[in-house]
Amino acid sequence: MTRTPADPTWRGVKIVSWNINSVRFRIDIVERFLREVAPDILCLQETKVIDGDFPLSAFHALGYEHVVLHGQRMHHGVAILSRVPIVEDDRLDWQANREARHVGVRLPNGVRLENVYVPAGGDVPDREANPKFGQKLDFVERMTRWSERLDCPTILVGDFNIAPLEADVWSHKQLLGVVSHTPIEVEALNRLQASNSWVDLGRHFHPAPERLFTWWSYRAKDWAASDRGRRLDHMWATAHVAAQAQRHAVFEDCRSWLKPSDHVPIMTEFAW
Protein backbone atom coordinates (compact mmCIF):
# COMPACT_ATOMS: atom_id res chain seq x y z
CA MET A 1 0.00 0.00 0.00
CA THR A 2 1.10 3.54 -0.63
CA ARG A 3 0.97 5.64 2.52
CA THR A 4 2.21 9.22 2.72
CA PRO A 5 3.54 10.19 6.18
CA ALA A 6 4.08 13.65 7.52
CA ASP A 7 7.09 15.22 5.80
CA PRO A 8 8.93 17.85 7.88
CA THR A 9 10.67 19.15 4.75
CA TRP A 10 7.47 20.72 3.44
CA ARG A 11 7.80 24.47 3.73
CA GLY A 12 4.90 26.07 1.87
CA VAL A 13 1.35 26.79 3.00
CA LYS A 14 -0.30 23.44 3.72
CA ILE A 15 -4.07 23.05 3.30
CA VAL A 16 -5.83 19.91 4.55
CA SER A 17 -9.31 18.59 3.85
CA TRP A 18 -10.85 15.87 6.03
CA ASN A 19 -14.33 14.42 6.45
CA ILE A 20 -14.02 13.80 10.16
CA ASN A 21 -17.46 12.18 10.73
CA SER A 22 -18.07 13.95 14.08
CA VAL A 23 -15.38 16.32 15.28
CA ARG A 24 -16.24 15.96 18.96
CA PHE A 25 -16.15 12.14 18.89
CA ARG A 26 -12.81 12.15 17.04
CA ILE A 27 -11.14 15.19 18.56
CA ASP A 28 -8.25 13.05 19.85
CA ILE A 29 -7.15 12.00 16.37
CA VAL A 30 -7.69 15.52 15.04
CA GLU A 31 -5.33 16.85 17.72
CA ARG A 32 -2.81 14.11 16.97
CA PHE A 33 -2.90 14.92 13.26
CA LEU A 34 -2.46 18.63 13.84
CA ARG A 35 0.50 18.04 16.16
CA GLU A 36 2.21 15.63 13.74
CA VAL A 37 1.50 17.34 10.42
CA ALA A 38 0.92 20.99 11.43
CA PRO A 39 -1.06 22.17 8.41
CA ASP A 40 -1.69 25.89 8.12
CA ILE A 41 -5.38 25.44 7.29
CA LEU A 42 -7.74 22.57 8.11
CA CYS A 43 -11.06 22.15 6.28
CA LEU A 44 -13.44 19.72 7.98
CA GLN A 45 -16.64 18.17 6.69
CA GLU A 46 -19.38 16.27 8.52
CA THR A 47 -18.55 17.94 11.82
CA LYS A 48 -22.00 16.99 13.21
CA VAL A 49 -22.16 19.78 15.79
CA ILE A 50 -23.82 23.14 16.20
CA ASP A 51 -21.45 26.09 16.29
CA GLY A 52 -21.89 26.69 20.02
CA ASP A 53 -20.72 23.17 20.87
CA PHE A 54 -17.75 23.03 18.52
CA PRO A 55 -14.56 22.07 20.48
CA LEU A 56 -12.79 25.37 19.80
CA SER A 57 -10.46 25.20 22.79
CA ALA A 58 -8.64 22.17 21.40
CA PHE A 59 -7.87 24.04 18.18
CA HIS A 60 -6.94 27.29 19.88
CA ALA A 61 -4.46 25.41 22.05
CA LEU A 62 -2.68 24.24 18.90
CA GLY A 63 -2.54 27.67 17.33
CA TYR A 64 -5.65 27.57 15.13
CA GLU A 65 -7.05 30.90 16.21
CA HIS A 66 -8.91 31.81 13.03
CA VAL A 67 -12.13 29.81 12.73
CA VAL A 68 -15.20 29.87 10.51
CA LEU A 69 -17.98 27.43 11.39
CA HIS A 70 -21.17 26.37 9.67
CA GLY A 71 -22.61 23.71 11.91
CA GLN A 72 -25.73 21.63 12.20
CA ARG A 73 -26.87 19.31 14.96
CA MET A 74 -26.19 15.60 14.36
CA HIS A 75 -25.74 15.91 10.61
CA HIS A 76 -23.59 17.63 8.00
CA GLY A 77 -21.59 20.66 9.12
CA VAL A 78 -18.37 22.19 7.76
CA ALA A 79 -15.57 24.21 9.33
CA ILE A 80 -12.35 25.99 8.38
CA LEU A 81 -9.66 26.37 11.06
CA SER A 82 -6.51 28.31 10.31
CA ARG A 83 -3.22 29.54 11.74
CA VAL A 84 -3.24 32.38 9.18
CA PRO A 85 -5.92 35.09 9.00
CA ILE A 86 -9.06 34.26 7.03
CA VAL A 87 -12.16 36.27 6.23
CA GLU A 88 -15.54 34.59 5.84
CA ASP A 89 -16.72 34.99 2.30
CA ASP A 90 -19.85 32.94 1.72
CA ARG A 91 -22.14 30.11 2.79
CA LEU A 92 -23.80 28.78 -0.33
CA ASP A 93 -26.93 26.63 -0.17
CA TRP A 94 -26.22 24.27 -3.04
CA GLN A 95 -28.57 21.75 -1.42
CA ALA A 96 -31.40 24.35 -1.56
CA ASN A 97 -32.74 23.28 1.86
CA ARG A 98 -30.43 25.15 4.27
CA GLU A 99 -28.29 22.14 5.14
CA ALA A 100 -24.84 23.15 6.40
CA ARG A 101 -22.74 21.83 3.53
CA HIS A 102 -20.56 24.74 2.44
CA VAL A 103 -18.44 27.54 3.81
CA GLY A 104 -16.00 29.75 1.94
CA VAL A 105 -13.26 32.15 3.05
CA ARG A 106 -10.68 34.48 1.58
CA LEU A 107 -7.02 33.95 2.38
CA PRO A 108 -4.50 36.78 2.96
CA ASN A 109 -3.25 36.49 -0.64
CA GLY A 110 -6.76 36.95 -2.05
CA VAL A 111 -7.35 33.32 -2.97
CA ARG A 112 -10.78 31.96 -2.14
CA LEU A 113 -11.00 28.65 -0.30
CA GLU A 114 -14.31 26.81 -0.65
CA ASN A 115 -15.06 23.84 1.63
CA VAL A 116 -17.93 21.58 0.55
CA TYR A 117 -19.67 18.41 1.68
CA VAL A 118 -21.60 16.94 -1.25
CA PRO A 119 -24.56 14.69 -0.29
CA ALA A 120 -23.88 10.96 -0.40
CA GLY A 121 -26.99 10.34 -2.50
CA GLY A 122 -28.54 7.29 -0.86
CA ASP A 123 -28.23 3.73 -2.12
CA VAL A 124 -30.24 3.60 -5.34
CA PRO A 125 -28.84 5.45 -8.38
CA ASP A 126 -32.22 6.52 -9.68
CA ARG A 127 -33.72 9.98 -9.31
CA GLU A 128 -37.34 8.77 -9.29
CA ALA A 129 -36.89 5.83 -6.94
CA ASN A 130 -34.48 7.68 -4.64
CA PRO A 131 -34.99 11.45 -4.16
CA LYS A 132 -31.64 11.68 -2.35
CA PHE A 133 -29.86 10.73 -5.56
CA GLY A 134 -31.65 13.49 -7.41
CA GLN A 135 -30.70 15.98 -4.68
CA LYS A 136 -27.06 15.00 -5.09
CA LEU A 137 -27.14 15.54 -8.85
CA ASP A 138 -28.91 18.88 -8.40
CA PHE A 139 -26.32 19.90 -5.81
CA VAL A 140 -23.46 19.29 -8.25
CA GLU A 141 -25.39 21.12 -10.96
CA ARG A 142 -25.75 24.19 -8.73
CA MET A 143 -22.03 24.04 -8.04
CA THR A 144 -21.44 23.98 -11.78
CA ARG A 145 -23.55 27.09 -12.34
CA TRP A 146 -21.59 28.83 -9.56
CA SER A 147 -18.29 27.69 -11.05
CA GLU A 148 -19.16 29.06 -14.49
CA ARG A 149 -19.44 32.56 -13.00
CA LEU A 150 -16.32 32.31 -10.87
CA ASP A 151 -13.74 34.94 -11.78
CA CYS A 152 -11.10 34.82 -9.05
CA PRO A 153 -8.35 32.37 -7.99
CA THR A 154 -9.98 29.61 -5.97
CA ILE A 155 -9.32 26.32 -4.21
CA LEU A 156 -12.26 23.93 -3.91
CA VAL A 157 -11.91 21.14 -1.37
CA GLY A 158 -14.03 18.60 0.40
CA ASP A 159 -15.91 15.35 0.36
CA PHE A 160 -17.39 15.26 -3.13
CA ASN A 161 -18.82 11.74 -2.57
CA ILE A 162 -17.92 10.86 -6.17
CA ALA A 163 -14.99 8.73 -7.31
CA PRO A 164 -14.67 9.72 -10.98
CA LEU A 165 -11.89 7.58 -12.46
CA GLU A 166 -11.64 3.82 -12.88
CA ALA A 167 -8.52 3.91 -10.70
CA ASP A 168 -10.45 5.82 -8.00
CA VAL A 169 -12.29 2.69 -6.84
CA TRP A 170 -11.23 -0.80 -5.87
CA SER A 171 -13.27 -2.33 -8.70
CA HIS A 172 -14.56 -0.22 -11.57
CA LYS A 173 -16.67 -3.07 -12.95
CA GLN A 174 -18.33 -3.96 -9.64
CA LEU A 175 -19.04 -0.35 -8.67
CA LEU A 176 -20.50 0.96 -11.93
CA GLY A 177 -23.98 0.57 -10.47
CA VAL A 178 -23.08 1.75 -6.96
CA VAL A 179 -23.76 5.34 -5.89
CA SER A 180 -20.51 7.37 -5.94
CA HIS A 181 -19.16 5.78 -9.13
CA THR A 182 -22.12 5.63 -11.50
CA PRO A 183 -21.71 7.13 -14.99
CA ILE A 184 -24.32 9.84 -14.35
CA GLU A 185 -22.48 11.06 -11.23
CA VAL A 186 -19.12 10.96 -12.98
CA GLU A 187 -20.54 12.93 -15.92
CA ALA A 188 -21.94 15.54 -13.52
CA LEU A 189 -18.56 15.90 -11.79
CA ASN A 190 -16.78 16.11 -15.15
CA ARG A 191 -19.09 18.98 -16.17
CA LEU A 192 -18.26 20.77 -12.94
CA GLN A 193 -14.53 20.32 -13.55
CA ALA A 194 -14.81 21.53 -17.14
CA SER A 195 -16.87 24.57 -16.16
CA ASN A 196 -13.80 26.45 -14.97
CA SER A 197 -10.93 24.20 -16.11
CA TRP A 198 -10.38 23.04 -12.53
CA VAL A 199 -7.15 21.16 -11.88
CA ASP A 200 -7.64 17.99 -9.84
CA LEU A 201 -4.57 18.34 -7.63
CA GLY A 202 -4.65 14.76 -6.41
CA ARG A 203 -4.38 13.36 -9.92
CA HIS A 204 -2.09 16.18 -11.04
CA PHE A 205 0.57 14.94 -8.65
CA HIS A 206 -0.44 11.26 -8.61
CA PRO A 207 -1.71 10.38 -12.10
CA ALA A 208 -3.99 7.38 -12.59
CA PRO A 209 -3.69 4.49 -12.15
CA GLU A 210 -1.68 5.33 -9.01
CA ARG A 211 -3.41 4.36 -5.78
CA LEU A 212 -5.13 7.34 -4.14
CA PHE A 213 -8.06 6.07 -2.06
CA THR A 214 -9.43 8.33 0.69
CA TRP A 215 -12.38 6.32 2.05
CA TRP A 216 -12.99 2.77 3.29
CA SER A 217 -16.31 1.53 4.62
CA TYR A 218 -16.81 0.73 8.28
CA ARG A 219 -18.55 -2.48 7.18
CA ALA A 220 -15.27 -4.28 6.51
CA LYS A 221 -13.91 -6.16 9.53
CA ASP A 222 -10.39 -5.40 8.35
CA TRP A 223 -10.39 -2.38 6.07
CA ALA A 224 -6.71 -2.74 5.16
CA ALA A 225 -6.95 -6.44 4.29
CA SER A 226 -10.06 -6.06 2.14
CA ASP A 227 -8.83 -2.67 0.83
CA ARG A 228 -12.08 -1.77 -0.89
CA GLY A 229 -11.36 1.91 -1.07
CA ARG A 230 -12.68 4.84 -3.08
CA ARG A 231 -11.34 8.35 -3.77
CA LEU A 232 -14.25 10.49 -2.56
CA ASP A 233 -12.25 13.42 -1.18
CA HIS A 234 -10.83 16.00 -3.56
CA MET A 235 -8.84 19.19 -3.77
CA TRP A 236 -9.19 21.26 -6.95
CA ALA A 237 -7.77 24.63 -7.94
CA THR A 238 -8.22 27.15 -10.70
CA ALA A 239 -5.28 27.29 -13.11
CA HIS A 240 -3.37 30.20 -11.52
CA VAL A 241 -3.52 28.63 -8.06
CA ALA A 242 -2.77 25.14 -9.33
CA ALA A 243 0.46 26.46 -10.85
CA GLN A 244 1.61 27.29 -7.31
CA ALA A 245 0.84 23.84 -5.90
CA GLN A 246 3.95 21.85 -5.02
CA ARG A 247 2.90 18.55 -3.50
CA HIS A 248 -0.18 16.52 -2.59
CA ALA A 249 -0.47 13.83 0.08
CA VAL A 250 -3.05 11.31 1.28
CA PHE A 251 -2.66 10.22 4.91
CA GLU A 252 -3.87 6.67 4.65
CA ASP A 253 -2.44 5.64 8.01
CA CYS A 254 -5.08 7.76 9.76
CA ARG A 255 -7.66 5.11 8.85
CA SER A 256 -5.95 2.83 11.41
CA TRP A 257 -5.92 5.32 14.27
CA LEU A 258 -8.15 4.92 17.33
CA LYS A 259 -11.81 5.69 16.56
CA PRO A 260 -11.04 6.68 12.95
CA SER A 261 -13.21 8.43 10.46
CA ASP A 262 -14.03 6.36 7.41
CA HIS A 263 -12.26 9.12 5.43
CA VAL A 264 -8.60 10.13 5.69
CA PRO A 265 -7.06 13.61 5.37
CA ILE A 266 -5.67 14.93 2.10
CA MET A 267 -3.20 17.81 1.88
CA THR A 268 -1.72 20.10 -0.76
CA GLU A 269 1.22 22.43 -0.21
CA PHE A 270 1.31 25.75 -2.06
CA ALA A 271 4.36 27.93 -2.69
CA TRP A 272 3.11 31.08 -0.97
Rank of each mutant, 00 (worst) to 15 (best):
L156A: 04
A245R: 00
F213C: 02
V111S: 08
V179P: 02
T144R: 15
H181F: 15
A239H: 11
R203M: 05
R211S: 02
V124R: 10
M235I: 14
L165T: 03
V169L: 03
N130H: 13
M235Y: 01
H181T: 04
N115E: 00
D200Y: 01
D159R: 15
R219H: 09
D200C: 10
D138M: 13
A245S: 11
R127T: 15
E210K: 15
W198E: 13
V178M: 01
Q135I: 07
A194K: 15
D168L: 05
N161Y: 11
K221Y: 00
V116E: 08
F251R: 02
S147R: 01
H172I: 07
D123P: 00
L201E: 06
E148R: 12
V199H: 15
V169I: 13
R231M: 04
T154N: 05
I155A: 03
P125W: 02
N161H: 13
A237L: 09
M235G: 01
L165V: 03
S217E: 03
N196C: 11
D227A: 15
W236E: 00
K132A: 14
N190K: 01
W215P: 06
N190D: 08
T238R: 05
R211K: 05
K136Y: 11
D126L: 03
V118T: 15
L113S: 06
T144C: 12
A249W: 11
V169A: 14
D233Q: 05
V241S: 06
V157K: 03
F251A: 05
V116Y: 14
R203S: 01
K173L: 03
D123C: 00
A224G: 02
T214L: 09
A129I: 05
L165G: 04
V241L: 06
E166F: 08
W216S: 03
G158D: 12
D126A: 02
R211Q: 06
D233Y: 00
A239E: 14
P209Y: 09
D138Q: 15
R112D: 01
F139D: 03
R149H: 07
E187A: 15
V157T: 15
D159T: 10
A225H: 12
K173Y: 00
G229F: 12
H181D: 09
F139Q: 11
G158M: 09
H206N: 10
Y218I: 08
R191L: 01
F251W: 13
N115M: 06
E252F: 12
E114W: 11
D123R: 11
Q193F: 10
D151V: 07
N130R: 05
A237K: 09
R149C: 06
S226W: 06
H240M: 08
W236A: 05
T144Y: 11
D227M: 06
S147Q: 07
P183D: 04
R219Q: 08
S197E: 15
I162R: 01
N130P: 08
D126F: 04
W215V: 10
A225F: 07
D151A: 13
N196F: 04
I184N: 03
Q174K: 13
R191P: 00
